[in-house]
């Protein structure tokens, strides 16, 4: 999921010009989990803006709980059919979701003016209803086979691939003494699994071209093609 956090209301208010009519839209998946743009927060945002003298022409969070704002066909249908009148009156859309959702609203409104209501902070695991933790950096070249599933690109502050730096103390990272050293975590896990030999081989430098932006994925039921500055890679899911 994409973790998001609302921008301060004082900042959001500054985005909106005097007299600008705003439609507020949230996301029923990730932003709902983050309480940054679910049904309650979107309604509340409409009220918070209205209290500050901003004209809100409508608000919605498309689909049932679990529906992502970034699913373009659905969002487009909701905005163009269910909320057509309000959308027609809107000068802009305040989007309470990740950056993907903001772009979905651009697409769904034929290039409408958008304001981001959230900062998109990371891709995370929903550990509990109150905790979202980052375990993957979306780097495009997964290396966790040799680390017992724990990502050094994410859990090591220096993104080291061949073992720890010398900075950790009592198992804690040199950057933050409250946080476990990613490499000590990897070591302890592999030791417990009896698989320490996985750490022996030299790990070559990352291909950062696979981490280039923007990247795209074309999918079908039988194969997928990942495009980045490293080129196109097509993989079948059938063989």
């Amino acid at each position: 999921m994409h973790a998001t956090i609302q921008k301060p209301i004082q900042e959001i208010v500054k985005y909106i010009k005097p007299g600008e009519k705003v439609f507020v839209i949230g996301c029923n998946n990730c932003a709902w989990k983050c309480h940054s743009g679910g049904v309650d927060e979107t309604k509340m945002m409409a009220e918070r803006l209205a209290r500050r003298g901003i004209e809100v022409v409508g608000y919605t969070v498309p689909g049932p709980q679990g529906m992502s704002l970034c699913k373009l066909d659905h969002t487009e249908k909701v905005l163009k059919e269910d909320f057509a009148d309000m959308v027609a009156k809107a000068d802009s859309f305040l989007v309470l979701s990740c950056g993907q959702g903001v772009h979905t609203v651009i697409d769904a409104t034929g290039g409408g003016m958008v304001h981001p209501g959230c900062d998109t902070i990371f891709g995370g695991e929903t550990v509990s209803t109150t905790d979202i933790e980052e375990f993957c950096s979306l780097c495009g070249e997964c290396v966790i086979e040799f680390t017992g599933g724990l990502c050094p690109m994410t859990l090591c502050s220096k993104q080291l691939l061949n073992g720890p730096c010398g900075g950790a103390e009592k198992g804690k990272c040199e950057v933050d003494s409250e946080r476990n050293c990613g490499w000590v975590m990897i070591y302890e896990r592999l030791k417990k699994l009896g698989r320490l030999e996985l750490l022996d081989p030299y790990q070559k430098p990352k291909n950062h071209a696979k981490w280039s932006r923007p990247r795209s994925l074309k999918v079908s039921t039988t194969e997928a093609t990942f495009s980045s500055q490293a080129g196109k890679v097509t993989v079948s899911n059938q063989e």
């Binding site: 502050s157 220096k158 080291l160 900075g167 950057v175 790990q203 070559k204 430098p205």
Partner: peptide, 24 residues
Amino acid sequence: LTGDHIQLGDHKEAKPVFDLDSVQ
């Protein structure tokens, strides 16, 4: 060497590079 992390220094908002590790 790898180098101390940027968070330990006086330019905390700089982009940490760490393209390679010290072994690489």
